[in-house]
Design a protein around this nucleic acid. Structure first.
Lengths: 100, 100
DNA sequence: TTGACATGCAACTGTTCAGTTGCCTATTAT
DNA sequence: ATAATAGGCAACTGAACAGTTGCATGTCAA
């Protein structure tokens, strides 16, 4: 999941799917300086990470952004860290003062 | 930043720093089946990604979790996607119905 | 000062991974 | 039926990267 988000190409695919849902593979390829097969591989990773859902319609494959797991980042990391945000910054400041 | 979060070892380091701030390199190494140098490399990446701040105190180096950039994920991705969450799910459902 | 401790730097290795090329399958339209 | 379209599969290449080993630097304590 984090690995899936690590690649710029995949983030761009997510952005494109966010801009317009239900795009086919060919549509997603248009404008990208990448082979269709490369895009396919990225989409496979994104689907494995549950970030994208796909539906076959005839010979086409429609792709949809799944916002749920991204929301889970918030639950797992942000909430967790934000809770201690001020405290951590305070500790950092204190550490810097001890240094000088 | 996303790349920095992509590695499990680095996420564990973040968890450890979250559990206890201001740990030295040696403390962070304890219990990890990894060389000290490997941990150093991870910490360099985390610092480059601005996820960790470090302070030298004598011969030791203290490490602190920086929660700010993780908060920015929320601003950039979660908010962006959550805003359209229900809509995207609706689109997905509609696509599935067209399929059947 | 000298030894022990905490960290930094550099070269090397094996693996993972992004992207390509080439070919195959399935569906639509004429 | 057949040609064009949309996508899938597999092998290969090159680069990035995680982790290692070996040595060097700097700092504390006796």
């Amino acid at each position: 999941m984090f690995k899936a988000l690590a690649d710029p190409s995949r983030r761009e695919l997510l952005d494109r799917l966010h801009a317009e849902a239900g795009q086919t593979l060919g549509e997603l390829c248009a404008g990208l300086r990448m082979t269709r097969q490369a895009v396919t591989k990225h989409l496979v990773l994104l689907e494995d990470a549950n970030l994208v859902a796909s539906v076959r319609r005839g010979r086409e494959k429609l792709h949809y952004l799944n916002p749920v797991p991204i929301g889970e980042i918030y639950e797992r990391w942000i909430g967790k860290f934000e809770r201690h945000r001020l405290r951590a910054l305070h500790e950092l400041k204190k550490g810097l003062e001890e240094e000088s």
